[in-house]
Design a protein around this nucleic acid. Structure first.
Lengths: 270, 270
DNA sequence: AATATCTGTACTATGTATCATACAAATTTT
DNA sequence: AAAATTTGTATGATACATAGTACAGATATT
């Protein structure tokens, strides 16, 4: 919906790259709705390409319904374009999130196998050489639209307690707890990554799209690693939101996340 | 350092895109150090390009010292490659962060002006038509290496209390408080974005690199918007880290961020 | 020792996206 | 009404990356 312009731009070309960049700025909010974006001539200079190329990129954006062009006047960003992400995870109120999440979304299994873990996962989980893990790659969809690409690694001994079918219906942390694991702590790293061909395909976005990356290591009460998650999210459908507040005095004055804000205050701003 | 391979790849070409994607997967940890990456033939299929093109991309990675190639054996990821980000902001322990931050980094002003705000900022800050804001674009560096691109919008009435020069030395939130603003709450949105030419130039990365995007609205005790921040971070130099813990029982069981973990436990894992 | 796999190297031909340029039409500004 | 700005349309030439292919060298596997 957001991706794949009608008149598909050449896969490896500059026009497409410009198209992706501009789209990113529009949906990302750098150009708000109604804003007049620079003229084609100026854009051509900024991106160091010819006006023809800019033009092709704009064609794509127009086909996507993101911009409106008027000869003589200029090109403007369509208002309705940025309807905001379908899902926004509030780091501090994950409670309603999870419930809502399971209800509104479904998971599709792309790959499921037991084998040696990637080095990064092995180290994070503290596995010894030769230990196998269950590696599952899933895509999560909301209303038929894919929004996240999940790769999980679980030590074989734990993973054997549930089946492949279970993963399509039940959140992994619940499966783990059902398997007798006392899920306790986790460590998350949030970053950004590009969509590689396989991921792009699964998420139905262009190769080279910017994705939000979350990597999580989960440990049980004894500190043993029980899950290694690598998630990639479409930024146009999913965002991390958090409220922060200013606390402390003097030199120790700093920001702190708000843990439990008003219960059901659904964010959903512009 | 991470960017700009010696034998510069053609700017608009496929080879460069493949190079960026592969580099992203390596530095992003998808291929851990020591891991053997697929053969050139297989990569060529995956990316749907010729082997020559894959080869060119690998040349770039090799020049960056990210991979080692051995005829007959294959191509492996260099261990030292992912030394981890220079800075990792722990959402939950921002106290030492800020101090360390100011000490180790410097800010370079790219642009400074008063004028009408972009629509997105105007709405977020709740400004009325015609109200001007101070718009400052800065780049933050650590040890001479740029790692973040900051665009701030502050209502003119507030911004007039400090000077352009102040921004190079003092964190903005401190300037605001010095101006009599009672900084109180904020709302953050974390996402991902692509590096546009101007940003890429400032951060010394390739155009089209994936960046971590943080957008923050800050309000005073009366709920008035006092600052609109749009920050872009290089994922290879900056990450958001957070510890989470599992709390609650039964249906209400969920994750929650850990607010005050052991004081100085510097993360810096693999 | 033989075989398979992988990287290293070289060459040509093809395609096609890109550029440069010019002019027309629509709109805003003076 | 005139001038300036902006999008719309068209075309031809060129450059340059890409694909395809073939073979040699290195290493691992059997």
């Amino acid at each position: 919906m957001q991706d794949a312009p009608k008149a598909t731009l050449p896969e490896g070309g500059k026009a497409r790259r410009v198209y992706l960049l501009l789209r990113d700025e529009i949906t990302g909010g750098r150009f708000g709705p109604g804003a007049v974006i620079p003229g084609e001539q100026k854009l051509a200079e900024q991106f160091a390409v010819s006006r023809v190329t800019i033009r092709r990129a704009l064609d794509g954006l127009e086909a996507d319904g993101l911009i409106a062009r008027r000869a003589g006047s200029g090109t403007t960003v369509i208002g309705g374009g940025q309807a905001g992400p379908a899902i926004s995870a509030d780091m501090t109120t994950l409670i309603p999130q999870l419930v809502e999440m399971s209800a509104r979304t479904e998971a599709r299994m792309l790959s499921f196998a037991y084998g040696p873990p990637p080095v990064a996962a092995a180290r994070a989980l503290g596995l010894t050489e030769g230990q196998k893990v269950q590696t599952a790659i899933r895509v999560r969809l909301i209303e038929g639209q894919p929004f996240s690409h999940l790769t999980t690694h679980v030590p074989e001994a734990i993973a054997r307690h549930y089946s492949e079918g279970d993963m399509a219906t039940t959140p992994l942390f619940r499966l783990l707890e059902r398997s007798g694991v006392r899920v306790d702590t986790g460590h998350q790293t949030v970053s950004a990554a590009l969509a590689s061909p396989d991921v792009a395909d699964a998420l139905e976005v262009s190769v080279g799209t910017a994705l939000l990356s979350v990597r999580r290591v989960v440990r049980d009460a004894d500190g043993r690693g029980v899950e290694y998650l690598s998630a990639l999210y479409r930024p146009d459908m999913f965002r991390l939101e958090m409220d922060i507040t200013r606390v402390g005095e003097g030199g120790a004055r700093h920001w702190e996340p708000v843990i439990a804000p008003e219960a059901e205050s659904e964010a959903a701003p512009a």
